[in-house]
Amino acid sequence: MQAFDYVRPTTVDEAVSILARHGDQARVLSGGTDLIVALRESRRQVQVVVDIKALSETAELAYSPQAGLRLGAAVPCYRIYGDSAVAAAYPGLIDAARLIGGIQIQGRASIGGNICNASPAADSAPALIVHAATCVIAGPHGRREVAVEDFFAGPGRTVLQPGEFLVSIRLPAPEPGFGAAYLRFTPRNEMDIAVVGAGASVVLDETRRTIRSARIALGAVAPTPLLVAAAGNALAGLPADDAAVEQAAALAEEAARPITDMRGTAEFRKHLSAVLTRRTLRAAIARAQAA
């Protein structure tokens, strides 16, 4: 592997100053499951690897039913689904955290790293979008927050500017009647990359029969993960029934603008967008009704 320096800052300010000093010659390390492979294959050239796991904020996993979830950018997947309160409150996130890589990848890989790697097929992206997550970014000019659907700039690219890094992800507290789910299509159940991924969340009314609001998101059907606002908006006020599900599925298929590659054709991905939206939305409704 190429030679580089390794630093392990203990404060956010220290991390920012190292990153600002080295510009594109520095890379942030959290779980390393993408970065170390990229360095080894020389897909990335760096002088400094900045390990952010010693920062208290990036290692934090804090949930309260009032404030919601503060998910540190370096928290590995296994800690997320291992926390029963978090697992109960954020089922869509948990679906994704359990799907990324295999067990030994989940022991290291973080959700923050998953979105910073910015694969259009990142499993956590549609899940975070339907949970209405916000990215908390630190940089030379202080802090800023970006909705997760606006965090991606293209395949492998994010809106992070030189000197900036992702500190944490905030997920609002689920409202009463909330349910969410994430599903993907892969030839193999584990250790695979989504051909298409779909997330859905709903808030049902007191009767649990009518949709108050909804969010639908797709992965691997565009250069970035997609919030399908049209599908979510169309569901507001509708009965939580098959007709509503079909309508959302059709709108998701329409929004998908996939390419053909080794994992599937554009036509197949369009089809999957509808199928997975249907399934994931049904699962989100069922969870909201069971809660």
Binding site: Y6, L29, G31, G32, T33, I36, V37, V49, P76, Y78, I103, Q104, I105, G107, R108
Partner: peptide, 11 residues
Amino acid sequence: VLVNSCLVLAV
């Protein structure tokens, strides 16, 4: 925690 030792830096 189970990990791939090829994906952990020794440092």
